[in-house]
Simulated assay, not measured.
Amino acid sequence: MRGRVLIVAGSDSGGGAGIQADLKAVTALGAFGATAITALTAQNTRGVFGVSPVPPAFIEQQMSLVLEDIGADVIKTGMLHSAEVIDTVAGVHARLAEDVPLVVDPVMVAKGGAPLLLPEAREALLGRLLPRAALITPNLPEAEVLSGQTIDGVPAMRRVAEALLALGPKAVLLKGGHLEGPVVTDVLVTAAGEARLFEADRIETRSTHGTGCTLASAIAAGIAQGLGMEAAIGRARRYLRLAIEQAPGLGHGHGPLNHAVTARPFD
């Protein structure tokens, strides 16, 4: 086991997304995952039916205790539902982990459509957290909300990724799964002026619950283990594809992935 990832995100009672997906992905790729839980959700593959926020002071305590004892090579964030929570996470990062790379998955809406970020928290996300990030991983709807621009194709993805990069993160991975077509394209742009397209054939499946959480955590694990940004993203995308291809087919809605695709069961 190599690399420490502190995951700051919400809990998914269905086990397919959130903290549960994060921990599974990090473990499957050989890193150690610690957590600070920001909210409890009551959900399954059909949707989110309830959210119980964790007080910001307790989120801060969780993060601080982990960082002061175990430490972290990367901090990965998921569901940060309010401006107060975002301010808390940014504050702890500035105080205790200034030099620790921050991977921000700007979770806003659950797969089933339930909002996971309060509207007034958008400005806190833009002003407080994104400038601290080594990488942000928005999907198309999230990128449209953050940028105020419409995305209708890969050229627009590149343009919006550059606009988000101007807000301060060191890199932006804009995920194109919401565009129609047989090929899924992700766009990476960096503050160093690099740009790259990652392409793969689309997998026709309903087992897509937690794909964003899984990808961001898999990338975080790679960075924590010393991989460069492109190498971490490439490995994470390969892992995610295998996890989708070998999904267990559970539930009646957007089903979970097979996060244990890399694991070998005991005899």
Rank of each mutant, 00 (worst) to 15 (best):
A133I: 01
L197H: 02
A171W: 01
A31C: 07
V154M: 05
A17N: 05
L165D: 04
L129I: 14
A21V: 11
M108D: 02
D186N: 12
V189H: 01
H178S: 09
V85Q: 11
A156T: 00
I136D: 04
E230M: 13
D22T: 12
P248W: 13
E142V: 07
S52N: 07
V183G: 00
H93F: 12
T262C: 15
A124T: 11
P138W: 05
A28C: 01
E199T: 15
V160E: 02
E245M: 14
P55H: 10
G3T: 08
C213V: 15
C213T: 10
P101I: 10
E68F: 00
V187Y: 02
Q149T: 02
L146C: 01
T41C: 04
R196P: 07
A9F: 15
P131E: 09
V154Y: 11
I136H: 00
S64F: 03
G193L: 05
G113W: 13
G50Q: 11
A200P: 02
P106Q: 03
I136A: 00
P141H: 00
D186W: 05
G71P: 09
L80C: 05
L135K: 03
A224Y: 12
A192N: 04
H81V: 06
R159Q: 13
A195T: 13
D105H: 01
A224N: 08
M63G: 11
F32D: 00
L65W: 08
A110M: 07
L179N: 00
L135G: 06
A94P: 02
L129C: 05
G78D: 04
V187K: 02
A90T: 07
T27I: 08
E120A: 10
G212C: 12
G153Q: 06
E144I: 14
G234K: 03
L130P: 09
G212P: 07
L188D: 08
S64D: 04
A243L: 03
L146A: 03
G153N: 08
A121H: 04
T185Y: 12
G71R: 03
V8P: 11
M157Q: 05
A121C: 08
P131R: 05
R2A: 14
G30A: 14
A200N: 02
M229E: 10
R202E: 00
I244L: 11
L80Q: 00
P182F: 13
V66G: 09
V154G: 04
A124W: 10
A28L: 02
H252C: 03
A232K: 11
V54G: 08
L102Q: 03
V66Q: 09
P265E: 09
E245G: 04
L257T: 01
R122L: 15
S11E: 11
A25D: 01
I151D: 01
T185P: 12
A247Q: 10
L96S: 09
E162S: 05
G253F: 05
L215R: 08
T38N: 03
P182C: 09
P155Q: 01
T208N: 02
E123C: 01
V109W: 14
G78K: 08
R2V: 15
H259V: 06
A94C: 13
I37Y: 06
R128L: 15
V66H: 12
P115A: 08
G78H: 08
K76P: 11
V74C: 00
I70E: 00
L188F: 14
T262W: 15
R95I: 02
V172I: 06
M1W: 08
L118K: 13
G148D: 12
P101S: 07
L65H: 13
A200V: 13
G251I: 10
R2K: 15
I203H: 09
N44Y: 15
